[in-house]
Each structure stands twice: as structure tokens, then as C-alpha cells.
Design a protein around this nucleic acid. Structure first.
Length: 716
DNA sequence: AGCACGCCGACT
DNA sequence: GTCGGCGTGCTC
């Protein structure tokens, strides 16, 4: 007896390989079984999907049995991926317009494809044995997983975590009434649905996550906790590990070694881990007893994957929660306007944490009007005297300050005072950034790096001057203004080495730093206890950016940065957030001053509605890359013409192709075209018909390098 | 995407 | 005479 199987194979969506292909098998393999199948002249991984589709569904005539090839290899050691998991993958593939197998196989641990059934069986057996013998912590004691490459301690939670008040670490603290209400709502019997937990930094969102997870675990189910960035996992991991001693907690993110990632994934899939904590890719962790999904800092742009299947892990978490009847808890001090809007519509249940716990208050926001500063040689100083005085004051008190500037390097441009030459990148339409530390000019888009020229390459003038300022220069200026201060800088440049970030954070926690200078890296999540002053040195640039989401991002970033100050209630009353601005009357700053997310959100939503932007409309972005801008435009123009022939075009608006803010990167010209519709369904239908035509269209465009569609794009 | 087959230029 | 350029076409 032979059976016919539909198998999702690892191949792109093109040429009709997007859906499952039919194969033969001696055994009736259940859906979700991992296999290897022949495809053309090679053998590729695949996942048994379901019974073969009928001809009527696929529109293709059925192939006779003798046209089918048998499955090459079956992974019997791996329990089949569940129905809900496959549903999630199928939805992702359809919604983000990618191949089924492409999505399915890309969200499995890469290490899996390197093994055969025997090796996999051995690993699983070893894992089970280690867990039985060593109890809960055996997972990480088991070092030899075939690679022997577990790093010494890439993210030692203890080193990253700030010192916590000593006491009964295992005992949950008493909840405020708000927290109590939130936990009860999420954990109510038969609870499902999506909850938006809105609370400022320090209002105790994490405690709500912890206690909601405790309920889930007590009910014998698994909890999934998503965080935006790898950097934030150690801290949260430490808190969960501390609370849930005796439970098995695994992390899942791209910073793990391949062997670790496979092990942690297996522990989730086999039901051996109770808690999974990870970045966006963890939304696909198979969890047989999923009972709760937490998305921390749900507004964070990092949840959107920016290549391949461009999925939003937050949106998929919500979808998955519905599928698996598990409550989804989205937490943020500054929710995304999409989530906020849904809460207003009643589709999400809003839970508010009104104040900081321990009676802490939010830092006072002070605006420095840069227009009022004296100019020397027509240039205003980067640091206002008022701010320098405030920093000096903190220094005298032995308190810490944090200066936030979202620009690394010494200066964004170098220029010649004689002929006006500027340090452009020869391969990109962008400036090369002057890095003084290693005397280089570096392009942050393509990586092209050269030593700083001694003289102007155009006229030979020796006087090359930096224009503007980055964190490197800010650090230098602080050191000049406050010679006694111990200054530390945290940005991508100073934390490149393994463990460098943890080391620097530890120094801050230990009080070895007076002034911390950094990019948005330091604004996010880190729990600094002794900082009483936070300053945004130059936040204005995002105020008038062309991206309609720029104000939302700026508000979130500044709120988050402000949250770094006064986390210790004893100092909260004195803590301040300084903003140096040329636009002191801007409504965004006015709202920030009052810590008033609600009125900011209301005004932004009103603008979005009148401009016909998300969340009131739905967007997709078609991007094209080519040797010349003309070739990229030509493809997009043809694509637009093609789109307008579909019946859905009535409900869909296709905008003209425009270059993105940085049009050329690494000698590739980019153009993009926005597609907008008030109806998500109409947009989806159009995309589904459109993409196959675009694959065909590609052949007619020689200069085209690649194209891609981004559903629900973040930046436009 | 891979990986073929296929038909025209400079080399051991 | 071959090695090899990458142009079209197929993979259940």
C-alpha cells in the first residue's frame, strides 16, 4: 500500500512551488512530520502538510501516481508539528505572500536540517536523560551537544541584572489594585482574547507578566514571552528564572549557538520547557500546551522581520493566541497606534497600570529652547549651559546621568572648509560617518570604510571639519565640560565585542560611571537604579521626517528614555528628563511633558484618519532594486499597470514609485511603491493575484536585481 | 532558489 | 578542438 502525501517543500514561492507538492509514502505519515524529499536533482527538507489537494482546489490537473516520487527520508524521532502550528505557518505564508514550505522550514532551527533521523533520535534521548538526571537546570549543564561550542557565558543574567533588594526572591510581591485587576483579567477562567497592558516604565508590567505566567504554569500549560531585542533577554530571563525556580525556562533567539537553539526548540516542542522567552522568531516555537503569550514592549519596531517573510511577530502572536485559545498580553508604556486603536474599538481589552509602584513619580520633563542660546561663529553649542550645570549638580551629588543621542560615530559628515567637499559614500546616496577613534570614514549603509584623508581629496586643503555630532563627540564634549566625571559610552561601536555590553552595564550598575552616553540601545529596557537625569541631546530630527510613523517612534523612544530615570523611588522625586530642542512648542513635546500618551495617541490617530493612513487603511510596499533608478521605476510602473487591471483595483490605491530616503546602497538603486486600501481583504486578494504576474514580469526587466513585497510595512 | 541543459568566445 | 560565460526552464 502506498499513500499520497502533500508536502510543503523548501522552495520559494515562484513557479508554482509555493504550495505543497505531492509525494508517495509506504507509511501513512501524519501531517506535521519532517521529511526529506527529492525535488528535481536534489533533495530538500519538507514538512508533511495534509492530504493531497483536489484538482478543483489547485486548478491543476492531478498527477497520476507514477508521476510522483517517493519520500526520501522520514524523521520519526521528531513528533509531528501540531495543527495549530501549521495553521500559524499557513496564515503567515498567505498573509505575507511567501511560499508555504519556505516559511515552514525557515522557522525551524537551522541545525535540524544538518541531522538525520538517527542523530536526531540520539540527541532527543540525550536531552531527556539529562533533564531527568539533573532536574530543571540540567538543560544548561548539558554542555556537550555535539558542538562543544557553548560560549563561556554570552549573556550572564547575573552580570546584567541590577542589584535587587535582598529578601525572599521566590515570593511574589503584593500587587497594586491595578496589577491585581490585570492579572485577574488575563487569568480568568476560560480567558482568551488579547489584552493591552498600558503602564509607564516602573508601573510593574513585568510583575503582571510573572503572575499571569505563574497561573499558566500552575494550570500545567506553557507560557511564551516575547521581547524585542536579544539584549533585553538576559535581564528578563533572570527575573523569570528567579521567580520560577524548579521550572524549566529556555530562551530562543538568534544569539544562541545552533546546538543551543535546537536544544531549546526541542524542549519547547517536546513540552519539556514550561517557559519560552525569546525574540520575534520565538513566536513560531512549537508549544504543545501553550497557555499564554506575552509580548513585552509591543510597539517596538524590532518585532517586524525585515527580510524574507516580513512578518510582524506581535501580530502573529495575536493570531496565534486566537488559534490556540490562549490569552495574549501586549504590554507597553507607549502602545503602537494599531494596538491602541484596536483597544478603543473593543477588539482588545485594555488594562491600565496608572502609576509607578512604590509611589514613584515620573521624571519632570524640562525643555531647553536651543533658539535662545548664544551663537559663536554662527554655530550653537551641542550642550546647553543649563544642561551642563544640571549634569555638574548630579555629579556633585554622586548621582548618575544618561545622555541619549541617536547617532553613533564622531560626526555624521566631514567637510572641507575650502571647497565644500563632503564625505559622501561612493557606493551609496549617504554620507560616510567620521569615526575619530580609529580615524575612519565609514558608511553605515554598505560598510565601506577608509582611513580619514589627511587633506581634502578634492582640493588638498588640510582643514577638514566635522559637521554635526555623534555619541563619540558627545562623550568627548562631556569629558571636556566635566573633567572630574567618569564617562562611559554605550553604542554599537563600543559593544561589538562579546560581553562588552554586559561589562559596561555592570560598570554602570556598580556606580563606576557618572555620565552614560549612548544611542537608543541604552534607552530600551535596561533597569538603571541610580540615574536621576536623562537628556535627549538632539531629538528634533525625527519631528519632521517624511515617515508618518516617525512621531510615534520618537514619542515612544523619549518616553522609554525618560523611564530610565528615577526607577529607584527614593530618587524619583528629583529625577528629570531634559530635551534640547529648536521646537519647544511642538505638541509632541507638550504631550511628553505631561507624560500624556493618551492625548498624543488621540491627536496622532486623528491625523492618521484624515490622511487615510494605518490603522484606518492597510498598506503594502513593493520594493525594487536595480542597477539604475530607471530600471527599478520601469518595473514598478509596469507592476502598477498590471495591478490596476484587477477588479480589486477599485478599492486599492497604487501610488507612484518613489525612491526611499537612501536610494542607493552598495551601488544598487532602490525604488518603492506604496499600495493602499481601506479593506485588508481587498488588498490581500489583489496581492495574491498580483505576485505571480510580477514573477512573470521580471523577465522583461533586464536591469532588475530583485523585488519584494512588504505587507504592513513599518517604514515608508 | 538550485541546478540543469544549451549555445557562442579565448585558451591549455 | 575544449572550458566556460550566464540565458531559459523545470522541479510533485
Amino acid at each position: 500500500m502506498t499513500y499520497r502525501l502533500a508536502v510543503a517543500v523548501e522552495a520559494p514561492q515562484y513557479s508554482g512551488l509555493g504550495g505543497p507538492l505531492d509525494y508517495l509514502s509506504e507509511l501513512p505519515l501524519p501531517p506535521g512530520t519532517l521529511v526529506r524529499v527529492p525535488l528535481g536533482r536534489r533533495e530538500v527538507p519538507g514538512l508533511v502538510w495534509d492530504a493531497p489537494a483536489e484538482a478543483a482546489e489547485t486548478g491543476r490537473p492531478p498527477l497520476s501516481d507514477d508521476a510522483l516520487r517517493p519520500v526520501a527520508q522520514v524523521f520519526t524521532a521528531l513528533p509531528p508539528l501540531g495543527d495549530a502550528w501549521r495553521d500559524l505557518v499557513a496564515f503567515t505564508a498567505a498573509y505575507y505572500q511567501r511560499g508555504l514550505g519556505e516559511v515552514a522550514l525557515s522557522v525551524l532551527p537551522p541545525e535540524l536540517r544538518k541531522l538525520d533521523d538517527t542523530k536526531l533520535a540520539r540527541r532527543i534521548a540525550r536531552l531527556r536523560k539529562a533533564l531527568e538526571q539533573g532536574g530543571a537546570d540540567a538543560a544548561d549543564a548539558d554542555e556537550d551537544d555535539g558542538d562543544g561550542l557553548e560560549p563561556a557565558d554570552p549573556a550572564n543574567p547575573a552580570a546584567a541584572a541590577p542589584p535587587r533588594p535582598a529578601g525572599h526572591a521566590n515570593e511574589p510581591p503584593a500587587l497594586t489594585p491595578d496589577q491585581q485587576a490585570a492579572v485577574e483579567a488575563v487569568t480568568a477562567a476560560a480567558s482568551d482574547g488579547t489584552f493591552l497592558l498600558h503602564g509607564v516604565t516602573g508601573s510593574g508590567k513585568t510583575e503582571v507578566y510573572l503572575q499571569a505566567a505563574a497561573h499558566t504554569l500552575a494550570a500545567g500549560r506553557q507560557a511564551l514571552v516575547l521581547v524585542p531585542e536579544i539584549n533585553l533577554t538576559p535581564q528578563l530571563e533572570a527575573r523569570f528564572a528567579e521567580r520560577f525556580k524548579g521550572r524549566r525556562l529556555v530562551s530562543l533567539h538568534s544569539g544562541l549557538t545552533p546546538a543551543q537553539r535546537l536544544k531549546h526548540w526541542l524542549m519547547a516542542h517536546l513540552g519539556l520547557a514550561d517557559l519560552v522567552l525569546g525574540t520575534r522568531l520565538a513566536v513560531f516555537a512549537p508549544l504543545p500546551r501553550l497557555g499564554l503569550i506575552v509580548v513585552d514592549e509591543e510597539h517596538d519596531p524590532s518585532y517586524k522581520q525585515q527580510e524574507g517573510a516580513r512578518y510582524s511577530a506581535r501580530d502573529l502572536a495575536v493570531y496565534r493566541g486566537r488559534l490556540e485559545r490562549a490569552p495574549v498580553l501586549l504590554g507597553s508604556a507607549t502602545p503602537s497606534l494599531e494596538s491602541w486603536h484596536r483597544a478603543q474599538q473593543g477588539r482588545y481589552k485594555r488594562l491600565d497600570l496608572a502609576s509607578r509602584i512604590g509611589g514613584g513619580v515620573l521624571p519632570q520633563v524640562r525643555l531647553v529652547d536651543m533658539n535662545l542660546l548664544p551663537r559663536t561663529h554662527g554655530v550653537t553649542v551641542a550642550l546647553s549651559p543649563q544642561l551642563v550645570d544640571a549634569l555638574r549638580e548630579r555629579l556633585a551629588l554622586g548621582e548618575q546621568s544618561l545622555l541619549f543621542l541617536n547617532r553613533r560615530g564622531y560626526a555624521p559628515v566631514l567637510h572641507c572648509t575650502e571647497c565644500g567637499w563632503k564625505s559622501g559614500c561612493p557606493h551609496c546616496s549617504a554620507w560616510r560617518v567620521f569615526h575619530r577613534g580609529d580615524r575612519t570614514l565609514r558608511c553605515h549603509h554598505c560598510g565601506f570604510t577608509e582611513r580619514v584623508p589627511r587633506a581634502c581629496p578634492q582640493c588638498g586643503n588640510l582643514d577638514l571639519q566635522p559637521l554635526g555630532r555623534g555619541t563619540e563627540r558627545l562623550e568627548e564634549q562631556i569629558a571636556q565640560a566635566l573633567p572630574a566625571a567618569r564617562v562611559a559610552r554605550i553604542d554599537a561601536d563600543t559593544t561589538r565585542a562579546a560581553g562588552a555590553l554586559q561589562e559596561r552595564l555592570a560598570a554602570v550598575h556598580a556606580g563606576e560611571v557618572d555620565v552614560l552616553v549612548g544611542t537608543q540601545m541604552v534607552a530600551k529596557g535596561h533597569d538603571f537604579r541610580r540615574i536621576t537625569l536623562v537628556a535627549a541631546v538632539n531629538p528634533d530630527s525625527a519631528l519632521f521626517a517624511s515617515d508618518f510613523r516617525a512621531p510615534e517612534r520618537l514619542f515612544a523612544l523619549l518616553m522609554q528614555a525618560a523611564g530610565r530615570a528615577g526607577r529607584d523611588a527614593r530618587q524619583a522625586a528629583r529625577s528629570q528628563m531634559w530635551l534640547q530642542t529648536w521646537h519647544p512648542t511642538h505638541p509632541l513635546y507638550a504631550a511628553l511633558r505631561r507624560h500624556d500618551f493618551e492625548s498624543f495617541a488621540a491627536s496622532q490617530l486623528a491625523e492618521r484618519e484624515s490622511a487615510g493612513l494605518p490603522p484606518y487603511t492597510h498598506l503594502a510596499l513593493l520594493r525594487a532594486e536595480a542597477r539604475t533608478p530607471e530600471a527599478a521605476s520601469a518595473f514598478l510602473d509596469d507592476a502598477a499597470a498590471c495591478a490596476n487591471e484587477f477588479p480589486e483595483a477599485e478599492q486599492v490605491l497604487v501610488y507612484p514609485a518613489v525612491p526611499p530616503p537612501v536610494a542607493r546602497v552598495a551601488d544598487v538603486e532602490r525604488m518603492q511603491m506604496l499600495v493602499e486600501s481601506p479593506s485588508r481583504a481587498a488588498l490581500q486578494r489583489l496581492l495574491a493575484q498580483w505576485l505571480p504576474k510580477l514573477h512573470a514580469l521580471r523577465a522583461a526587466h533586464k536591469g532588475l536585481i530583485r523585488w519584494a513585497v512588504d505587507v504592513d510595512p513599518l517604514g515608508i
